[in-house]
Computed example of a mutant assay.
Amino acid sequence: MYRRRFLALALGVMAAGGCGRAGDSGAASAGRLTIVAPAGRGQGWDRTARALAAVLRGEGLARAVEVSNYPGNVGVAALSAFTAARGAFAREGRLLLTGMPMVAGAEIANADSVTEATTPLARLVGDWAALVVPAHSLLRSFEDFAAVLRRNPAEMMVGGRLEGGSDHVLYGMIGRCLGVDVRLLDYAGYSGGAEAAEALYEGRVAAILGSARSFMPDIAAGRVRPLVVSSAERIEGIDAPTLMEREVRLEYTDWCGLLGPRGMSAGDREEALALCDRIDASPRWQAVCAANGWNRVYLSGDDFRQWLVTETRRTRGVLNELGLMRSIATSCWGSCAGRH
């Protein structure tokens, strides 16, 4: 069992432990598994789902695995179609890939929360964020950035992926921690990281938030300068402090996890949790994570459920302050660790 701090606001970092079932090599393989990906084939979460399916097959953790796609509405359609349990998990299991966009999407749609509509199983991986500016920017440090926000939150346009997604929510959380009026933050949402970067280079935004690893080539080439990263510790290859170092008590990762259908029996839930533990302990999965730059942030069972309840509450509060609860279209937000 290990513990990992994850996504904390000014109240402090919430610690949560993983489960102790991992490594049970004697556990029986599952029967037929369906992984539901809330994305079109080849897009976002679908890539993560298919990587996961390949690991399940390669490790012999299931006799057959398929991926079922439900694109659109940041996973709300997939969530609605997934709610009811169907038969024994050991014979025909179903898993839903999830992340922060689905949590936010359910809140914005005024639907049942993820924790109410499913059986939370495990958080698997995450993607740290970075705040970057053009190399020639007058914002030389995060302190400069924070000073502008505190003086006038609406003075500076910050970009990232689409409104209500991970980057926007993180910007709201940073604003909260800096004590500014989040309602006044000026944010420009784009369909992807490439479009946000183009806006940065053309001077349409002063800074952008996004996947830290996706910025590494431009950082190395000297085209952008990182001001801060959202991880607990500094990231190799990015010469920038963490938010915590700059007295912003916030740690944030764009996470991906697995859910089971609502109404799972205790036995089915234990079978599913044991499978999640074996996935995280799998050398194949660890190699896939390393190859894709995904950070393993494993948390399972009751610990994950409690963390998800708290995280949903925090996300709802930020979305409300940003004025997004009833105002935005949610058909094409990005996804968690599947981004490249």
Rank of each mutant, 00 (worst) to 15 (best):
I235P: 11
A53W: 04
R47E: 05
V205Q: 01
A62E: 02
V76Y: 05
R234I: 01
I238W: 02
R91P: 00
L11E: 15
G175T: 00
V55F: 13
R21K: 10
R284A: 07
A49N: 08
G42V: 10
T98D: 06
L184D: 11
A290Q: 08
T118K: 08
L319W: 08
R47I: 10
M14A: 14
R262K: 03
G20W: 03
L52Y: 01
A77V: 12
Q286F: 10
R151S: 13
C19L: 11
G193Q: 10
A290L: 04
E233C: 04
R204G: 07
V74I: 12
D112N: 14
A27R: 11
I279D: 03
D277C: 12
S211R: 03
L243V: 04
W45A: 15
G87W: 00
N73H: 08
M102K: 04
V65M: 06
A28C: 03
V297M: 11
F82R: 09
A15F: 06
R21C: 04
G172M: 14
G267D: 00
A154D: 01
D144P: 10
G40Q: 13
C276K: 05
E116T: 13
P101M: 13
E270V: 00
A240P: 02
A196L: 09
T83S: 13
A15I: 05
S214M: 06
R63W: 05
M102E: 13
E107P: 04
R183D: 10
W45H: 07
W255H: 12
R50V: 08
V76L: 07
A106T: 12
L299D: 07
A85S: 11
C332T: 12
V103W: 01
S191Q: 07
A64I: 09
V76P: 02
A78T: 06
G175V: 02
V114Q: 09
S68Q: 09
M157S: 13
A64K: 13
G189R: 11
R246G: 12
T330N: 12
R47V: 12
A53K: 11
D127R: 08
S327A: 10
R296P: 10
R326V: 03
G126Y: 09
E271T: 00
S141C: 08
L56V: 02
R91F: 00
R47Y: 05
M14D: 15
R213P: 02
Y252I: 12
G334Y: 02
W294F: 07
T242W: 10
A122T: 00
A77S: 14
D254P: 04
R339W: 02
P134Y: 05
P120Y: 01
S191V: 14
V169M: 11
C177H: 13
A287F: 10
A207N: 00
T315E: 10
L184E: 12
A130Y: 01
V229G: 07
L131S: 02
E311T: 14
A274K: 00
A81D: 15
A8E: 13
P101A: 07
T48N: 08
R326T: 12
V114M: 08
A106Y: 15
G323M: 09
G17E: 14
E202P: 01
W255L: 14
A147Q: 13
L259N: 04
G40W: 09
R32W: 02
G267S: 00
G323I: 05
L227P: 09
